[in-house]
Amino acid sequence: MIKKPMAILALAAVGLLTAACGGGDPESVSIDLEVRGRQLVGNDVLSAKKGDTVALNWTSDESVTIHLHGYNIEETVTPGETTTFAFTADAEGHFMIEAHGFGAADGDHHAEEEDGGVTLGYFDVLPR
């Protein structure tokens, strides 16, 4: 009776330890991202590890304001130009990337509030 639970507990402990391990040194992560047809081309979950130096290089076929939640970086991307979000991923979590005001003139902030935004994807910062 007692042996089986003990074995499961031991397995549980191994599981916990595996989840707890990790490591390595911070790296530089540079990701090229393209917005086309109001969607993100390719994988919509991007990730880095805590402490990484991150560069998200945005291009778009339409003028759009892109907002990385949590880190609260918001920039307008215009067609034909690359806009880079450069930051250190010092907070772990699952952060939404939202697009506001497709095609809107710059600085038209109230129109953006009304349209509610389109979720392009997520940026995950995992524990090292």
């Binding site: 499961i8 397995l11 549980a12 599981g15 595996t18 989840a19 949590g70 772990e92 699952h94 995950d124």
Partner: peptide
């Protein structure tokens, strides 16, 4: 902003 609990930890919790 929560990251999902990893599978190993989820199973470990359920097992426990």
């Amino acid at each position: 902003y929560d990251l999902p609990v990893p599978l190993g930890l989820y199973l470990a919790g359920a097992g426990a």
